[in-house]
Amino acid sequence: MTDFLKLAGKNIVVTGVANRKSVAWHIAKTLEEAGAKVIYVVRSEARKESTAKLLADRQVLVCDVEFQEQIDKLRDDLTAAGHKIHGLVHSMAFADYSEGMKPFHETTKAQFLQAVDISCFSLVKLSNALKDVFDEDASVVTISISTTTMASENYGFMAPIKAALDSSLAFLTKSFSSFSRVRFNAVGPSLLKTSASAGIPGYVDAYLYAEQVIPRKSAVTTQEAADVAVFLLSPRSSGIQAQNIAVDAGMSINYFDKNIIGGVLKHES
């Protein structure tokens, strides 16, 4: 069977490509392999230059989601080009940890609100701006995390923001349903080996721990998360709406692995 995902010829906007390790890049190249036309959106001219070799001969637009005028320009550029958008990948997150990792209760208002704006509210702003450019059955996919209720100290204040992102899916679904069938879903991977994650204090230790908890003893790959995102972007996932699909290779069911318990008890004794 050819074109099982029915993505050939579809126009998909992909935000957030920074380098070859990016979740967005893995999604984009898989979409291209499926025959989709990918329109890349990066956050700055500097990022456009740094990805010039990686994204050679592809359409690349610039949009910093902290500025509404740039979001409006993105909409205008897509409209002027006559693009009907069949999918949007929202793959962006930012948290200011420049002062080091602190207890959650010491998070500043400025840090939290900036992270909400870039990592969560940008999905609302982009969706609203592109509502008239979307195909009636377009699919919007954001990148979340596998759980927002586990208090992982090394993830700082981002988990509550991802929780807001997940909740936004239901409300975007409801509000868009009055005039379209646009779908909103998230992919929630467990710990991935990306350039962005490498900058989080203590992340490497958490990643190695995850590999021990996962039943297969190997972490989720970025491509595995990307494959789920591509499925959610495709018409084959038309019955899935307002969901965060966890991609954790079973990590969440295996915290009481006897070997891990034994190691902890042995260490404490």
Results as ranks from 00 to 15, higher is better:
residue 179 F to G: 02
residue 210 A to Y: 02
residue 210 A to H: 02
residue 252 S to N: 14
residue 232 L to K: 04
residue 188 G to Q: 02
residue 227 D to E: 15
residue 206 A to M: 14
residue 257 D to S: 03
residue 247 V to T: 03
residue 212 Q to L: 13
residue 188 G to S: 11
residue 190 S to C: 14
residue 250 G to D: 01
residue 230 V to K: 04
residue 246 A to F: 12
residue 225 A to I: 11
residue 219 A to W: 05
residue 229 A to P: 00
residue 211 E to C: 10
residue 250 G to N: 07
residue 177 S to W: 08
residue 211 E to K: 15
residue 189 P to K: 04
residue 225 A to H: 03
residue 175 S to Y: 10
residue 226 A to T: 00
residue 178 S to G: 11
residue 240 I to S: 10
residue 217 K to Q: 10
residue 232 L to M: 02
residue 222 T to W: 15
residue 192 L to M: 04
residue 240 I to T: 10
residue 223 Q to K: 13
residue 215 P to S: 06
residue 249 A to Q: 09
residue 209 Y to A: 13
residue 215 P to F: 03
residue 236 R to S: 12
residue 206 A to I: 05
residue 209 Y to E: 14
residue 210 A to I: 10
residue 197 S to K: 08
residue 254 N to S: 08
residue 193 K to E: 14
residue 177 S to Q: 06
residue 225 A to Y: 05
residue 257 D to G: 01
residue 182 V to I: 03
residue 203 Y to F: 13
residue 226 A to S: 04
residue 234 S to K: 06
residue 215 P to Q: 04
residue 187 V to W: 02
residue 179 F to D: 07
residue 246 A to S: 11
residue 195 S to M: 10
residue 214 I to G: 06
residue 250 G to Y: 04
residue 239 G to W: 09
residue 259 N to Q: 15
residue 251 M to G: 05
residue 242 A to I: 00
residue 210 A to W: 05
residue 241 Q to W: 03
residue 204 V to Q: 15
residue 191 L to C: 13
residue 218 S to K: 15
residue 258 K to N: 12
residue 202 G to S: 00
residue 230 V to D: 09
residue 242 A to M: 02
residue 190 S to G: 12
residue 215 P to W: 07
residue 225 A to R: 05
residue 209 Y to H: 13
residue 234 S to P: 02
residue 245 I to F: 15
residue 249 A to T: 06
residue 189 P to V: 01
residue 206 A to W: 11
